[in-house]
Design a protein around this nucleic acid. Structure first.
Lengths: 218, 218, 218, 218
DNA sequence: TATGAATGAGCGTTCATTCAT
DNA sequence: AATGAATGAACGCTCATTCAT
C-alpha cells in the first residue's frame, strides 16, 4: 500500500503548488490546500511535518520533471555549442511553461535561508555539473574560449538565467521569456567581427534591469 | 520645522533597518521598531502610511550613501578597466559592510513584485547606466571586446554581482565576499593566453552554487 | 491613568476566576474569558503574557483578601490557643466561602511545578511564619507541648488543612467543611484525659480519606 | 488465551507509565504510548475504553506492588511503634524508588475528581485501615497517647506523608525524601523531655513549605 | 504631534478516536 | 486481533492599524 500513500502525497503536493503559486508562503493557507486536495486539514499533517515542510517538498517532483525533460531534449546533439544552446533554451522554456513553480522557486525559495538548508535543497541534483561538463568539453574541442575558468562560466550562465526568469516574473510575465536566448553565451566564444551590438537588451522592452540599478546623483 | 520631521523620519528608518534586518518582513513588528525608535506605535503611522511603506522607504537613504561612496572612489581613475574594477569592488565592498541592508535588499526587496512597482523603486537611480557608459567607453578605446552588446555585458555583470552577494548572504556571510572579485570581468576582455584556468571558483569554498543547480539523472 | 489600567486588569482577573473556576486550565478558553470581561481576546494579551500568566496571576488578589481577613479576625485575641483556633477556622472559612478559588488553588496550582516556580508563587507571603510564630508563642507560654519541633507542627497543621479542603472539594463540597475544625490541634496539647476518642473522623461521612488509602491484600 | 490478553495489557500499561510519567495527562499522547508498546494506536482502544481509562488503570498494578512490599517489610515486627515507623519508611521509600508513578499519583490523580470517582479508585485497598489498626493497637498497649482520636491520627499521618512526597516532587526530587522520617509520629507519643526541638524541619533544606504559606501584611 | 489601549480577524497545529481492511 | 489512515473540531496567540485623548 506504499503506492497509495505516495499517490495521496502527490495529490497534496499538487494542491499545494496551486495554492502557494497564487500567493506567497505566508498568505497561503492550509485549509485551502486541504479543500483543493479534498481531504481534511489534519491529513496534511499526516504526510508532512508542517506548512514549511510541505512548501519545501514541492520542488522535488518538479526537479525530476526538469531533469527528464532536459535529457530528452539533449538527445542526439553532438557538439558542445549545440548542447549549451539547448540547455539554455530548455531552462527558459521550462520556467515559461511552469510559471507558478517558477514564482515559488525564484521569488521565494531561492531567497530563503531555511530552504538553502533544507533536505530538499540538498537533494537537488547538480544541474550545474552538467553545464560545467559541457563548457569544458566545448573548451577542449576548441569551440569556447580556453582562458575563462569553467566554473566562472558556469556561474555566470546560471546567474544570468536566474536573473532573466526573475525579471520576467517581476514584470508579470508580460513579455516573451525565450526572446534572444541565444546571445547569452556569446561571451564564451572567441571574439567575432562584426559584433552584434544592440541585439540583446532589455531596454527596448522598458524593463528596469535590476534591483541594483542605481542612478548616480547628478 | 520640516527639519525636525525629517530627522524623526530618519530615526524611525534607522530603527526599521535594525528590526527588518534581523528577521523577515512578516516577522518584524511595528511595536519593536517603535520601541527601538523610542516613540509610540501610533507615531509611526504619522510618518509612514503603513508597514510596507516604511519597509520600502528604507533603501532611499542607503542608495544615496551608495552613490556618494561610488563617485568618491571613482575619482581620479582614467581608464575604463580601472573604473569597472573599482565599481565591482565597491559594489561588493558596500554590501559587505552593510550586510543588514544587503539582506533586506537582496533577499526581500529584489524578489518583491510590490517593491518593483513602488515609488521607491522608481526613484532608484540607474547605476546600470553608469556601468553601460563605462563598458562602451572601454569598447571604444579598445580595452574590451567590441563584439559583445553593451547591454548584455551590463546585465551579465549586474546579475553576477547580485548572485554573489545573494550566495554570500544565504551562506551566513561565512566567507570573504571580496575574494576573486577581479575575475568577474575576464569575459569582456580579449582572449588571453595563457588562460587563468581554475583561479576563480566557488567550488573550493564549498558553497552550493545556485538554486538552479540540478543533478541530471544517470 | 495607572488606575484605569489596574481596574481593567482586575476585571479580566475576575472573569478569569469565573471561567477557570468552572473547568480546568486546559479546558477553559480565552475567548470565554474575553466575552465575560466584555473585551476582545487581543486585549487580554495586552495585560497578560499568555494564558498561563493570566492563570497564575489569579491568586495575587485573593491572597491579599485572605491576609486582610485573617488579620481582621485575629484582632483582640490574646492567647496562642485562641489565635491558632481562629487561624484554622479562618483558613477553612475562607475556602468554604471561596470554593471556586479553592478549586483552582488546591486542585490545580498546588500541584503545578510551573506555578511553584512562578513569580506569583514567590510573592506569596509566608502565612506559614505566622503559624510558626503562634506555635512557638504557645510553647513558651506553656499552652502547647514543648517537645515538638515548631516547624514540624506548622507543617503538620498546614498539610492537614490543605488535606481537608482538598477532600471537601473532591467530594463536591457535599458536607460541612467547618465541622470539627477544633480537634485539629489536639495533638499539640499536653495529654488530656479523658480522650475525645471518635469525635473527629471522616468515616462517619463516608468520605474516602486519601489517595494513599490502600487496602492491604487479604 | 486470557493470558496473552493480560500480558499485552501490561505492556501497554508499562508504556503508558513511561509516557504519562514524563509529562501531564493532556500533553501525553496515545501515539507515543503505542510507539513505546510497539503496537498501533488502534490496538490500544481494543484494550482500553479511552485515554482516561488507560490513565486511571495505571495505579492498579502499582498498588499491588506497594501492598506486597509493605507486608513483606512488616514481617516479624511486633510492637506498634516499630510497625508504624516501618510503614512510614516504606511509604516514602516506595515513592522515592517510583518517582514517575509518584508524580502521576500525587500531582495528577490525587487531585482529579474523575479519578476519585473511577473504578480504579474504588479498588484501591484501604492502606488507611492498616494504619488505623496499628495506631489503635499502639494506644491500647500504652505506646501512643490515648487521648487522640485514632482516625484523626491516621488522617494527620496520611496528609503529612502525601504532603512530603508532593513537596519533594515539586522540588524536582532535589533532596533526600527519607531524611527525618522518624520525627513524623513524635506527636502521637506521650510528651517527652527533653524535647527534640529543631531536629525536624524543612527550613534547613530551603524548601518552600506549602502552597498555603502566606505572609501576613504588616 | 504624540500616545497607547483596544481591536478582531486570521490560521497553523494537535490528537483522541474511528473504521474499513 | 490488529492496523494506520483519516478525521475535524478546537483554540491560543499575533499584530497592523485605529482613534479618543
Amino acid at each position: 500500500m506504499k503506492r497509495k500513500r505516495d499517490l495521496r502525497k502527490q495529490e497534496i503536493l499538487q494542491a499545494a503548488l496551486d495554492v502557494f503559486g497564487r500567493t506567497d508562503f505566508q498568505r497561503a493557507c492550509i485549509s485551502e490546500i486541504a479543500r483543493k486536495a479534498k481531504i481534511s486539514e489534519g491529513t496534511i499533517y499526516f504526510y508532512f511535518k508542517n506548512k514549511e515542510d510541505l512548501f519545501f517538498s514541492i520542488p522535488a517532483q518538479k526537479i525530476e520533471e526538469f531533469c527528464e525533460g532536459l535529457e530528452f531534449h539533449l538527445q542526439g546533439i553532438q557538439d558542445a555549442p549545440g548542447k549549451l544552446t539547448k540547455m539554455i533554451w530548455f531552462y527558459l522554456y521550462f520556467f515559461k511553461t511552469n510559471p507558478v513553480y517558477a514564482r515559488i522557486l525564484m521569488l521565494e525559495m531561492s531567497v530563503s535561508k531555511r530552504f538553502s538548508k533544507s533536505i530538499t535543497f540538498d537533494r537537488i541534483p547538480v544541474f550545474t555539473d552538467r553545464i560545467l561538463e559541457i563548457v569544458r568539453e566545448g573548451q577542449e574541442k576548441g569551440f569556447f574560449r580556453k582562458d575563462l575558468d569553467g566554473c566562472l562560466v558556469r556561474d555566470i550562465l546560471l546567474s544570468f538565467l536566474e536573473y532573466r526568469v526573475t525579471r520576467w516574473l517581476l514584470n508579470e510575465e508580460s513579455y516573451e521569456l525565450l526572446e534572444n536566448y541565444g546571445e547569452i553565451f556569446d561571451f564564451i566564444q572567441e571574439t567575432q567581427r562584426p559584433c552584434r551590438q544592440g541585439i540583446f537588451s532589455f531596454e527596448g522592452l522598458g524593463i528596469p534591469s535590476t534591483v541594483s540599478s542605481f542612478k548616480p546623483p547628478q
